[in-house]
Design a protein around this nucleic acid. Structure first.
Lengths: 235, 235
DNA sequence: TGTAATCTTATTGTAAGACGAATTGCACAA
DNA sequence: TTGTGCAATTCGTCTTACAATAAGATTACA
């Protein structure tokens, strides 16, 4: 294992470390199809023997995998592969980028623009129905406390793209939705409803390009708002 | 430190676990600005005392952070915060999704569609120049081995959006670019050049909507190809 | 006989101690 | 002044041990 005499400068960014190797081996279990999502891994004792490492090393690896959201550990029950691969890593990453709110907004914008395009191809009637409800909720909200419905609107669109990877990404980005809301003190409910209706119409017509266009208008409006306020805060 | 009598069950979706708390605390060091990127953390002994945990727990946390790409550990030298937060988590995540190539393609598609739109607003003349070069490279390639130039084309567009978060995402997604290439046995160089030229023209004109449209055509073409081949392989 | 409570046990969570490896830095000698 | 060697620091790993928790079984009681 440690015969590094072979000119390991090539791709050895890894600096070996047993625990990392263990991480990769466990990931391989999934990739190779030996285990599926949702499966229960052997108890730590067995894994130790099977992989030939000590318990702390194994636990370091498991801890890393858990933080990545690949597995879930339940006291006394065991360790399981997660069915949803996704959101966790992003959350941590985004936690480190909270100071860069405009970047997050733009990332969300980029992603949602693509999403709505694909949603126009795939969205189901049920999802359209749900969308319409959120619009109603916003339109009928007495106060200006329609943040949740707004978030829901975007979330439904994300789901309708029917792609687990993108879902994971957008889930994390939408976490910042609340923060964005708090930035925009001056609510413009009618404006929001208008935008949402336009997007809905495009989706209903299954028109990717129009869906894109309407979403672009909407998000560009939001972005301008945020840029405006955040720059006002910065300086 | 260890008398957690303060009812920490408040937002503890985390099922506590000391090591996770340690992870968050260390992340907080960065977020709160107490430490900066590139800084050296105290040696493990000191961290143990400071955080009031045992070494295995601390090491589990550090291991998780390292896997996330937040820190780097060097034998004997110490532990350092990384300057670039970014791509690592995605790579792992995507490693688990390699079996779902169409999903990756679509995710890339969604992201690139949004990207090219924003790129149209931000791209610099130098970046346009680079883009043109990659197109030339592809056009002049004798054999059909223009995969790298193709990848470069998309990468430049991603960079021109000038957003670190999106860069991290797209970097990981483009890893699959090679895999996609290998799927498409039948090269259609002229077709590719055509698409790229159209995208380039839109970017040069700083026309977001046309850029989107051209990219959509391009990626949709690629997607159809991949779907075709991968479904042929599946069955 | 069925249900509930208790107890055992398996498994994860945490701790402490120890040793090895590797690299750095200092000291000493040439 | 420079080079070599030794020591100390710090990460990497292992061993052992105990605590906590919850599932499952067993037993007692109705």
């Amino acid at each position: 294992m440690e015969e590094s005499s072979k000119k390991l400068g090539v791709q050895s960014v890894h600096r070996s470390t047993l625990s990392k190797q263990v991480v990769e081996q466990i990931v391989q279990l999934l990739v190779s199809g030996q285990m599926k999502a949702g499966d229960k891994l052997p108890p730590e004792m067995e894994l130790m023997e099977e992989l030939g490492v000590s318990r702390p090393v194994l636990r370091e690896a498991l801890s890393a995998l858990e933080t990545l959201g690949v597995i879930t550990r339940k006291t006394r029950e065991g360790t399981f592969f997660n069915n949803k691969v996704g959101t966790h890593p992003f959350s941590v990453m985004l936690a480190l980028a909270t100071d860069n709110l405009p970047a997050i907004i733009e990332a969300r914008m980029a992603l949602e623009l693509g999403l709505v395009t694909m949603a126009a191809e795939k969205i189901t009637d049920e999802q359209l129905e749900k969308l319409r409800k959120t619009i109603d909720t916003i339109a009928n909200s007495e106060d200006n406390d329609y943040g949740e419905a707004d978030k829901e609107f975007h979330h439904i669109i994300a789901l309708s793209a029917n792609n687990p990877i993108v879902e994971g990404m957008i889930d994390s980005l939408l976490i910042t939705h609340n923060k964005v809301n708090s930035l925009i003190q001056v609510r413009e409910r009618e404006r929001t409803v208008e935008y949402h209706k336009a997007i809905y119409a495009a989706l209903e017509a299954r028109d990717p390009q129009d869906a894109f266009l309407q979403m672009y208008k909407h998000l560009d409006f939001v972005r301008q708002k945020v840029l405006q306020y955040s720059s006002a805060n910065d300086e």
